[in-house]
Structures are given as C-alpha cells and as structure tokens.
Computed example of a mutant assay.
Amino acid sequence: MANQQNLKISGMLNQHEFIERYVFTKQRVMNGFTRPDLAFLLGRIPNDVADYEHFGAHVKMSYQDHEVMAAVFKKLAPTTPIFQARANDIDISNDKRMIRGTVLETDAQRVYDFIHPWKIKGEDKPITIVEELDRDMTQDAMIRAFVEEHLAQLKAQGCFEHGCTALFLYQQLSGLICKSWQPLFLKILRVSIYARIHAQEIRVHQVNGQTIYKTKP
C-alpha cells in the first residue's frame, strides 16, 4: 500500500500575502523544483520552503530570494486568483483572514487544497495545486557521474577556494547538461555538496546574507 500523509495547515494572511505564497508554490511546482532543492538554491535550511508554503509566519522571502527564483524559474508566473477586494465599498484586501488548507501527500503526488474567505468572480472557490513527485531513478547514475565530473573540474579551477553559491554551481552545470536532466540534477548536486561538507572538504560561510561554499576558512 502506498504511503500517504494528510497535513492540515492554517495561517492569518491578507490577500497579497496569500497570493505571494500561492505564486511561489505554483512556480516551484511548474518549474520542477523540489522543496529541498529550492531551499539549497536559496541558501536556506531545508524546512524553510515547506514552512513558507504552509503559511509559517516566521518565514519571509527576501529580495535576494526573488532574484534567485527569477534566475532559475524558466516558466512564467501563473495567473493569480482575482479576489473580491472590496466589501460595502471598503478595501478588504489588506485585512488578515484565516486561511485553512490540507496537503495530501502520496508517493506519487502532493495535493494542496486551500480554503480562503474571499470570493472569486462572486463565488466561493477553493484553490488546488497538484505536484507530481515521481522520479525516473534510471537516469540518476548517469547524472551523478556528470555532476561529480564537473564539480571536480570546478574545484581544479579554484572556484571553491574563492567560494561558490549554490546558484553559481547550478548555473554552471545547467549550461552544460542535457535538457531532459533539468532540473533533476539539482538533487544530486545538493547531496554531493552536503556530502563534501560532511567530509569537511567544504565549509559553509555566510557572506552578505549569502550562503557560500568554500574549501578554505
């Protein structure tokens, strides 16, 4: 029997905050990035993306985060829901309201269902996002060989002596890898970098708010 998890989420958001999180989740899914992989590119801890998508008030996306996403998301932003912004001639778009939802996850899919208090075209309409989680594991050995070869080349060129961001590494390899492996290779890149950190070959530094991977202190 397939594994299944059903998580209930809720948060107090205004229309602008909800749309921002909806667009974030939808774009991540449309562009094929997993939560941990996008967190790696953003230089954030793995749980940050999940917490943001689950309406965690403690997680905010910075201007720098949006710059990274603009660089890696190739598909345009989705059409956003148009909520009724006024009631009794009063602007309600900035009023924080309770948003509730569920995240149903199986081995194959993650389904977000959001229940919000605003009308869309005069109707109460929930919002759903479906994320496919299946991965073709048969390609992973070839992708791993590609990633390891090019990380070794970057190390030989001295890139890690000066320090590399995850975005830099992703862009270097993305320009060389075949289209069908994008962004699948990002998971293997992330795991490979973390393995080097665990082996103390690479150290993590914070420089001007950016996460930098370096071989030297």
Rank of each mutant, 00 (worst) to 15 (best):
T165C: 01
T25N: 04
M69L: 09
R203E: 13
K96D: 07
I177P: 00
A70F: 07
Q182M: 12
G101M: 06
I90Y: 12
R135H: 12
I90V: 15
D124E: 12
M98F: 03
M61Q: 07
I82Y: 11
L76S: 14
I115L: 09
E105Y: 02
A145G: 09
R35Q: 15
Y194F: 14
C164Y: 00
D140E: 13
Y22S: 02
M137L: 15
L167Q: 01
T128Y: 09
H116T: 13
L38T: 03
I99A: 04
D136F: 10
S174I: 03
D91L: 12
E67D: 12
A70Y: 08
K125S: 09
Q64I: 00
P78M: 10
I129Q: 07
Q4T: 14
L151A: 03
A77S: 14
Q4I: 15
K155H: 10
G158A: 04
A70E: 12
G32W: 04
R86K: 15
N47D: 12
L189V: 02
V59S: 08
I127S: 08
M69Q: 05
L7R: 09
Q84H: 09
D91K: 09
G43Q: 03
F24I: 02
E131N: 06
S93V: 08
Y112R: 05
Q206D: 11
Y170H: 14
Q172L: 07
E53Y: 01
R100G: 10
D65P: 07
L13K: 00
E105G: 03
D89S: 12
V68A: 00
G163D: 03
E131P: 01
N14C: 09
D48A: 14
